[in-house]
Amino acid sequence: MSLDKIGIAKRIAQELCNGWYVNLGIGIPTLVANYIPQGIEVEFQSENGILGMGAFPYEGDEDADLINAGKQTITATKGAVYFDSATSFAMIRGQHVQLTVLGAMEVSQTGDIANWKIPGKMVKGMGGAMDLVASADNIIVAMMHSNNAGISKILKECSLPLTGVGCVKKVVTNLAVLDVKDGKFHLVERAPGVSIEEIITATAGDLVVPDSVPEMSI
């Protein structure tokens, strides 16, 4: 059975390493914070100006001056720090943040990502996504393998306006974990109960399939 959004978040959470600073995008990536493995300590950075982002506040404790990049009310953890937007993107561009997790509308086999604009339909702006993908060493994309119409989002080339080129290293979808290297997708793991054939069918880009593909353990 393919994973739901929580399953994708749980699988990505397994990639976290002790001591990392992590930036989570809006949507599935935000859920990753709920499934940090035991014994792992990470700090979450939100690009609007906080390191040490905590859980949502209890009802009645909301503070209009304390939000995340999704404009949601949040709390600060012990040891948190606030800073301005230029400092925030210095952390990002300067590669002081070890992992960026973000969503995508399309990913290509050369690591290009499109996630900010559908011409004529959705033009909301790129926010911090272009700075994040251009700079981060370690980018994981969290997404569904196909769109609602069943069309693959794992492509040879992106058709939508790009957010960044050659930057995605790993993709975790409802069907599989894919590495992106040497201009191809490489199948690393499959979701529990999902067949290799199912993944091949749902992948429009070139896919390298090794002899043995383990199931994810969630």
Partner: peptide
């Protein structure tokens, strides 16, 4: 507040 998000006590 644009997105009021809270958790249960």
């Amino acid at each position: 507040i644009e997105q009021r998000t809270t958790r249960q006590k």
